[in-house]
Amino acid sequence: MSETEFLLWVRGPAFQVATIIFLLGVVVRILEILVLGRKPDLAEARGSAVAGGLRAIISRSFAERATLQRTAFTEVTGWIFHIGIFVILLLFAPHILLFEEVFGVSWPALPTTVIDATTIVTIIALLAVLIHRIANPVMRFLSRFQDYLVWLVTILPLVTGYMAFHRIGLTPTMLIAVHILSVELLMVTFPFTKLMHAFTLFMSRYYDGAIAGYKGVNS
């Protein structure tokens, strides 16, 4: 298989398969949770479950002061790399082009220099997160193979993307192919790992918030 054929395979069938696995897996997992349902709460409502649920989705994004002081490192690095990933994913011109191709909508891009700097910061934040995971005895004890796998499939698209933009190591054709492939790896692992938190975090926060809201408790 030549490099061009490899890139074509990555852009074509491989991307198609990855999209199918990603969407199918995500939809199955979300529906599985939702369909299970909950027992009706027979107690009289003392507040709005919906309002409580929505409030929790927002409020749980920000750690309370005591927690923040205890886990400032995790909070800061976590915020940095999450924002970084979204900025790179959504505001880099070739990425927007991909969304336009698939969804038919487009939006303005950030200058490549800004994306470049964001990528470096995000990669550093992810490296720091890994070092913290290994260095901290409690974190290390709690970590399983999947935690390292999830870290790897998250950082790979960033590293390969950076390499592709700066043409480091391989031919440009191979670099783009490897970058797209790394994203496909992320898409394929997504539904079956903790990466699902991107969707389930909203569900679980709503769940908790709704229970409290129904009881009239401000969570």
């Binding site: 999209t19 082009l97 969804f103």
Partner: peptide, 16 residues
């Protein structure tokens, strides 16, 4: 464009 998919992704997405 070199970075865009070559297969019909929206269709695959709907089926998925």
């Amino acid at each position: 464009a070199i970075s865009t998919p070559t297969e019909d992704i929206p269709k695959a997405a709907i089926y998925a």
